[in-house]
Write a protein that binds this DNA or RNA. Structure first.
Lengths: 362, 362
DNA sequence: TTGAAAGCGCTAACAG
DNA sequence: CTGTTAGCGCTTTCAA
């Protein structure tokens, strides 16, 4: 029949050239806006082009120029509002330089991350923005960079040197969290994170270049300031699943001397911890105080409104994107967005109830 | 700075072929796993390949085969957990058939949507999954489909015929929402949505093939069942910005006969409405009842826990992806995921306080 | 300014 | 089984 069912073959430069009665090269130049083209040819070609409904084939363009117009973004969990927001920042920023975003979700799985990088590279993306799920096992990232690919890390860093990394500065805010809690009289402070860490936490342990490391360090510093030490057994990692989180809460809340405050490393953790607290019939802040990272709207609407650490997630995304664009040779405004976190005190931190003085650690 | 193509040139089939001492075609066949290749050649080629660190160039592959391994997804607001979750479903599903996702965020802007479709098509994605921002202005989608591109709509439909559309079934749940509210004694029920609609709502108005239309219709039906009619002026659209939302709330709450209940069309609206209610010092459900669409974890943690309509957003994403895969000729499990919404009654709906009997509309 | 021709890396006939 | 030869759609020398 007609060439309907087969596929409405897209018009190519050759088609346009033929229709315009010029050479393929001239048509391409006119269409692509490069090289020297006379007014004459230009208008004829343009006319022919939109008469035929010509749409440049980006694939072919990338093939021949070796330049791609897409960047790869790999994150652990796009369902997490934290990454959703960061992704938005990345997307908005690169889009204005004409790039599209190829997104891969890894479920915080190392293997998935490695193959994602692989895939993206095979797809010849111009560069990579990744929130690495591990700070140790990073050969896939190192080799990518070694092969000459542009890669920028965000949210979390890795130990290998020479990586552009965009992170929010948590030192001050974390110290402040510690102070606020200590000032209120808390000494048994729990910390819950979904970060995967082998074994349980010990002081001075290497937590990688993660926000979590900074946050834990901040609280430890506050303890030091107060001439005290933070019981490391109160730091619970690996709370990635509902069960793990429940277990972590159990260990913190159901011990002989339960914690009087708990710091939640992200909003997902906070949601879980709040649920566990509710389940136990504990009141905030009378029975237990809570501080959470990430200032999402709902944190202000729960009862009581949560004291949180706000962080410029969207801006972090933008900065990561800018860093990548710079590597790709684009001119990007030099001024960097300040990426500082700050505490927002609301009503979820109170004075711990009178309880036996905790014995100094050890 | 970064080493460019020159120094780290990627190995190609030709390189591998040369190293393995076979023809380009044989190498390609071995590498691509197609055609007939002897054990001999196979092993030699494989060896040479990973010796050279060969990585197939997906771009070239797509070019020659005319088949792409990426699909385009365009949504209004990736920052919204609703789309984040749906995206997750899409991504998980297509990934198992080897596709990656190219994501474009449109800010619910029609022009942005049109150019997104354009861009994606130029990038030669295999197909498109889009949550259209308008149900009327859809020429960009129609022409895409007419040109022979595979496109699947989700979340919202459009009026043009012949579009595969994946939506959650809201009729029953919406009716139930109406009943629950009416049974509790409410008659002045507000509805707030961010959907863009010209002019104010009137009964029988065409709201497009949107979930909102179904939800409004459900409540209207409940009213009809009760032998009453719903005052159309209580339905407020266009609450896309904070200001617009505040205005909508003002019109609903600050009128002589304020509404006794409000239904929030999505979780973002709910967040805003809750804020407005709090600001006014109103108590839920004593002073005002609230029902929200989308059952996200935080809705259970606010005080009081919200009565919500849960919907299988992730599954909707998966189904949309499957529909697309089918169009692309993949074999996909025939059984469709049931996409039904259901009400989850918690504690945000109560009896309205005694007030002058509302006069029947008109 | 223009056009002819040579690729980019890969697959797909078509012969041996 | 294997190799040769064309392209896919575009950009880019290189001459004219």
């Amino acid at each position: 029949m007609t060439k309907r069912d087969q596929s409405v073959r897209e018009a190519t430069v050759a088609d346009v050239a033929r229709a315009a009665g010029v050479s393929k090269a001239q048509a391409a130049r006119a269409l692509g806006g490069y090289g020297a083209v006379s007014e004459q040819v230009l208008s004829v070609v343009i006319a022919a082009a939109d008469q035929l409904g010509y749409r440049p084939n980006q694939l072919a363009k990338s093939m021949t120029t070796g330049r791609s117009n897409s960047i790869g973004v790999v994150v652990g969990d796009i369902e997490n509002a934290h990454f959703g927001l960061a992704l938005r920042g990345i997307s908005d920023e690169v889009r204005r330089e004409g790039y599209t975003v190829v997104l891969v979700n890894t479920d915080e799985d190392l293997e998935a991350e490695a193959s994602a990088v692989q895939e993206l590279l095979q797809q010849r993306v111009a560069g990579l923005v990744v929130a690495p799920c591990s700070s140790n096992e990073t050969t896939h990232l190192e080799s990518a960079q070694a092969r000459g690919h542009a890669v920028v890390l965000f949210d979390r860093g890795i130990h290998a040197l020479d990586f552009d990394t965009v992170r929010v500065e948590f030192a001050d805010a974390a110290l402040e969290v510690g102070r606020v809690l200590l000032d209120a009289g808390h000494r048994r402070i729990g910390y819950v994170s979904s970060q995967r860490v082998g074994g349980s936490y010990e002081r001075g342990m290497d937590l990688g270049l993660s926000p979590v490391a900074d946050r834990v360090a901040g609280i430890e510093r506050a303890f030091a300031e107060a001439g005290d030490r933070w019981d490391p057994s109160l730091v619970r990692f690996n709370a990635a699943s509902d069960e793990a989180l429940a277990a972590a809460c159990a260990e913190l809340l159901d011990r002989p001397e339960p914690v009087t405050a708990v710091v939640c490393s992200d909003s997902l953790i906070a949601l879980g911890v709040l649920g566990q607290i509710k389940r136990r019939g504990l009141r905030i802040p009378e029975d237990i105080s809570v501080v959470a990272y990430d200032d999402f709207p709902w944190t202000e609407l729960v009862e009581p409104p949560l004291t949180v650490v706000a962080q410029p997630v969207y801006d972090m995304g933008r900065e990561a994107a800018r860093a990548l664009l710079r590597k790709l040779g684009h001119r990007v405004p030099a001024e960097r967005l300040p990426l500082r976190a700050h505490i927002v005190e609301r009503s979820s931190v109170g004075t711990p109830r009178a309880q036996p003085q905790p014995s100094p650690v050890r």
